[in-house]
Amino acid sequence: MLLIHCPYCGARAQDEFHYRGDANVERPAPHAGQKAFYDFVYARDNPRGWHVEWWHHYAGCRRWVKIERNTVTHEIRTVKGPTQDTR
């Protein structure tokens, strides 16, 4: 069970959160075309190491938080609000 320090609620157990993958991909402008949307929806760096990702504190403040987590050790380095920069 990961322990996630929600910036709004404090340290909370992982099972209060839902996961939603890579937070580095950004939705393209509406007319950017299929390739840009392909990159947004499908293509992933899938790093072995630090990964910035979305988690939703559904059983708490219901904010989407951006977490920087190591995919090998599961260590969490930063947790930021939805519009804050990670680094």
């Binding site: 069970m1 099972d15 890579d22 899938n46």
Partner: peptide
């Protein structure tokens, strides 16, 4: 387990 991982060890939930 439901999150990206290369760790080869799982968690309790």
């Amino acid at each position: 387990d439901g999150y990206n991982s290369y760790s080869q060890h799982g968690n309790l939930p």
